[in-house]
């Protein structure tokens, strides 16, 4: 049985189409990733699935419940961790969990056992009676994940779960997410704009301008790119580009100030190319395909450029939106 079934979901805001014809299914215990730049429609999709925003057209079932007709059943079935913290910082960790359990109607006895369980799971057992405002960013995120799990949801939605955290904490969160799947019978649906994080997923949907561009396992997606990617910096970009196309019959892409050539067996191609280009070549490098390249291939732009640019603006944007 598929725990999430999305059929032709659309969301329009006046003139803007945020999500266009999104269809997908997610199986039980899967880690499913939604990958795309900021503003691609990831959060809007999650919000629709979480019954926070109603779709303009299309349907979705979560655990067999319709997101439009049975919002309360859907809400009971899912756990949510948002980009921004939604903890009450003036309450203790335990109190935050307790109130969540009350709102999700977890029985008293189950609740106190479960609270201990999830707190242990995220290593916050010894901090349970401390006020949340004394917690670090990573601890807060862990507590939020624990809270999202408290009512035994079938699906845990994580919207950019590691955004704004340092690399060490990000790794820790990921270790924790993997453990989670071992221990709990849970499906994880997450969004990210970090390519390296998407590699943790069983399957990924790449989304751009509100549409799903492709959907597959990270391995298969990387196979799509084909060979190794050689990045060149040259003196005369336009002429070198047409030269390589003519002489080697290889497609050349421009990425910022650089040229990119995709070729199988790159390590043997580099010397040939270097000799051929001679003094016009300033630098050359090669890498194995990553999801970044998949994204570039499918959308014609690099996701990191966009996210890097969006980063500074994002804080402001987030504050404004609250």
């Amino acid at each position: 049985m598929n725990i999430i079934e999305v059929n032709h979901l659309h969301k329009k805001y006046k003139a803007i189409t945020a999500v266009e014809d999104v269809s997908l299914v997610v199986g039980q215990k899967e880690i499913f990733g939604f990958l795309g730049p900021n503003g691609a429609g990831k959060s809007t999709t999650i919000k629709m699935l979480a019954t926070l925003v109603s779709p303009t057209a299309g349907t979705a079932l979560i655990g067999g419940f319709d997101i439009v007709k049975q919002p309360n059943q859907v809400r009971q079935t899912i756990g949510l961790v948002f980009q921004e913290t939604t903890l009450d910082e003036r309450l203790t960790a335990s109190e935050n969990l307790f109130f969540h359990g009350m709102l999700y109607n977890v029985g008293r006895q189950t609740l106190s056992r479960r609270m201990g369980e999830v707190l242990e799971m995220v290593d916050l057992g010894d901090r349970k009676n401390d006020l949340v405002k004394t917690f670090s960013g990573g601890m807060k995120r862990r507590l939020e994940i624990a809270r999202g799990l408290l009512h035994y949801p079938g699906v845990l939605f994580l919207d950019e779960p590691t955004v704004g955290l340092d690399p060490q904490t990000r790794n820790r969160i990921w270790t924790f997410i993997h453990q989670l799947r071992q221990r709990e019978n849970i499906t994880i649906f997450m969004t990210t704009h970090y390519m390296d994080e998407a590699e943790h997923c069983d399957r990924i949907a790449i989304i751009d301008h509100g549409r799903i561009v492709t959907l597959d396992t990270p391995e298969n997606l990387k196979k799509m790119v084909g060979g190794d990617i050689i990045t060149l910096s040259v003196t005369d970009r336009e002429r070198v580009k047409s030269h390589i196309i003519e002489k080697f019959g290889l497609p050349v892409k421009e990425s910022g100030q650089h040229l990119q050539v995709e070729v199988p067996g790159g390590e043997t191609f580099i010397p040939t190319l270097a000799v051929d280009l001679g003094e016009r070549l300033r630098s050359i490098s090669m890498h194995r395909p990553t999801l970044d390249d998949v994204f570039l291939k499918l959308t014609g732009k690099a996701i990191r450029e966009e996210s890097a640019g969006a980063w500074s603006g994002m804080r402001v944007h987030m504050r404004g939106r609250r």
Binding site: N72, Q76, L80, H100, R322
Partner: peptide, 16 residues
């Protein structure tokens, strides 16, 4: 304030 600090969302998404 709850809206500003996010807690309102936790309450609004609860099945109540």
């Amino acid at each position: 304030w709850d809206r500003e600090f996010g807690f309102l969302k936790e309450v609004l998404v609860a099945p109540v």
